[in-house]
Amino acid sequence: MRLIIGGSHQGKTLYTLKKHGISSENTADSFHSAENKAVFCDFQQAVQIALSSGEDPEQLTEALLRVNPEVIIICDEVGCGVVPVDKKERIWRETVGRLCCRLAERAESVERIFCGIPMKLK
């Protein structure tokens, strides 16, 4: 598994597809569809959907990694704003951050994209 992080609209997906020669059809945006795709885009959104439907995103992540251990996960960094008033938003933000930490620990590589430019963090 590899992890790509960065702010929104920084060119993370384009960078990933180009670097690994992956076609845009080989991407997914949900835990389920990511099981047989090379790239899992908008991980932060999938986490939000999981939380709002009462599922545990951590368990879903574990299940995904069991069937697709080579997946490249792309996730927006969402934690650099004012603490949201809405509790659900707060929990989401925190969950995305914590999950990224855990993914980063296990990832083969971690890259951060800024203005379309990659920086290898791990």
């Binding site: 960065g6 932060q44 004012v82 203005c115 430019i117």
Partner: peptide, 27 residues
Amino acid sequence: LFSDGISYPAETQRYLALLARLNQILA
């Protein structure tokens, strides 16, 4: 301005997407 995780109204999102694109092109 791209790492706060906030969903802004459509017009603001459009502005953010444009600014991010300009950042990439100028980079």
